[in-house]
Design a protein around this nucleic acid. Structure first.
Lengths: 204, 204, 204, 204
DNA sequence: GATGAATGAGTGTTCATTCAT
DNA sequence: CATGAATGAACACTCATTCAT
């Protein structure tokens, strides 16, 4: 017989977290396809049936984790964002915070990446998962209006700003890229060069 | 009635191609994990056992397809590459040919992308799959030596030159990006801006 | 309606036993190779997947059954063994009990025999499966030391004492041998004659 | 184009023999169940289809081999059998020749044994496979009539005379039994003691 | 809430055999 | 005669999910 001293809700959260952690670990280790419910359950030290108490099905579990990671990542890279700062400064800060979060949460990012390239990604409303970046996107739009940066399709922005960030940070896909201070500076510069509008500052 | 013009091999190639096509179609439709051998066989109008005549196992099938796509893609984008041309011109041509190939073979590229982000990708020697690009990479290196472009880690190059190419071309990941002439020009410009070394041409 | 008298374990044991029985029946009917997991499951009125709850794999199932039969057989033929009795008496009793057990459990013995001549037998530590006979073997050794029986290699002992027992009892291999009282007596006598040391009791 | 210089029949016999040898080798190595037609074909350097030219099906192949081995073994152990010799002498000679054949053809015997304990054995008329021993069996019968040996059921004879022979000779089942001259002598003596009728030669 | 047992449908792969050439 | 290609059926085993307790 088990005695719950404090609060049942606590226990629940522990279980849910255990399932989260186990799933992330397993997916990173063996990939999405091979991360079966049974294995996740074993890794989390719960019964397979227990997982179905917290999540409707496997899909729900995997998506929930993705969304949570996404939320964490977004709020981390948008922390203290100030729309009134100069765009370049905001840009640099965004990359910096992103790199920092990524390097401190490699496992989460690896899951995030794998999820996006799995068929499960189609079940998530991607636009929604981008919501948190809205202030930054607005600033970029303003920058385009002010001719600071190029006026480009959102896909191009993603391709040259957000995407490289993800891959560079993922050790699995970036091979021997070392996140040194110098490399980070270069990466930020490259991204900025890609989007900024060149102006000859010596002409009137 | 079938007429064998030359020899039996003719029929074989047809079957192998049917299996290739069926696999690519299925993987693009339902993803890597859900593309079972049985389903592939049905799609190719072939017995599951037949697949094992042409490929050692599922892994071998998937990798073979990837390598073939890779070869096609590489030779398409490197066609007529001339190391003595100005770097920017080579660069532009490379992107142009790549975009052209990609837009004409969306299904192949979608497979290619999915493969790279699947666990199967670890079974392929990636360096080898990049061999065909060597002349272009050498030109980039020379460009760095001549201070035309930034001297950067290969991972950074990949992240800002090759990766955006892939994603922009893949309709699944690039959403509503339309490959208009204008968009392509912009993309090429962005990529070049990312890597080029800025020089004030008005100073001595 | 099922009534659970004590606890769930009851039902489990029934299932496990059903699987055991089905396996033995099937192996005896169609042989080891043709006794597939699917067929066993159907015979036991169980899903194939259920078998994997009780046994790690087919090998584990087959070996488990063998070991259980072996245990039963050993303890049956060694029942009430008394090392201080005259060797011939022990010998006769051993054969008698063996014959009795065998004749009452023909199916188990048939499985046992087939297992030993299947490739699976190599996965079992044979010496361990003989452990239960140790007191009898010791008695035989003492008998050899006392020049009551021949001092022979263990393999010879097996070939003339334990092996004939098995085959005679197995209806599949022994054809029309009827286990009449007379036949049993003769068999025991033959086995004893084979191993005993002849002494002319009339010479000094 | 292949040119047959001498005689087609020769080539055929070579192929058939290659298939025989390959089968025996494979069955001994991996067991009956795992010796598939495809593997046998590869081992024999022929196409699977070729096997079906020489044998109706797999069953036919396996049985044919068994019967051929059986014939060889029988004629070897019955070589120069003389019904007019004293029974014990014939008996000893029979064992001796058997042991000799067995030790010189371990692979054949291993196949023979495995076959007999496989379900295929039921497809062979066992009585027929014993035909060659008939003169020896007759001699044993006469011996029983003359009260030289026990008058026993044929199954008992098999269990104490023919069976031990097989097992002792099979290295797989006999473990560390070494076929030394001494061991062979003992084995023969044990078998003879088992069947002979004891007579006190000192009484009238 | 939590569970181990249970399962039908599915997995990748191999089977013995046939067939057109 | 000889073959490689072809196959439906079967193989051992795992899957996501449900259910009685």
């Amino acid at each position: 017989m088990i005695i719950y001293l404090y609060d049942m809700r606590l226990q629940d959260e522990n279980k849910k977290e255990a399932i989260f952690d186990a799933t992330i670990k397993l997916v990173n280790e063996v990939g999405f396809a091979a991360a079966s419910v049974a294995k996740i359950a074993k890794e989390a030290n719960v019964s397979p049936a227990t997982i179905y108490i917290y999540f409707r099905n496997k899909e729900d579990l995997l998506i929930s984790i993705f969304l949570e990671i996404n939320k964490k990542k977004t709020s981390a890279s948008m922390e203290g964002f100030d729309g009134s700062s100069p765009l370049k400064e905001s840009f640099r800060k965004f990359w910096y915070l992103s790199f920092k979060f990524i390097s401190q949460n490699e496992d989460l990012l690896q899951y995030h990446d794998q999820f996006l390239s799995s068929p499960y990604s189609e079940l998530v409303d991607v636009t929604q998962s981008v919501d948190g970046f809205q202030p930054f996107l607005s600033a970029l739009e303003s920058g385009a209006a002010e001719k600071i940066i190029k006026k480009v399709d959102f896909s191009l922005l993603k391709a040259f700003v957000f995407l490289p960030l993800g891959t560079l940070a993922n050790t699995r896909t970036s091979g021997n890229f070392k996140m040194t201070h110098q490399n980070i500076e270069t990466a930020i510069e490259m991204a900025w060069d890609a989007i900024r509008l060149e102006r000859n500052e010596f002409l009137p």
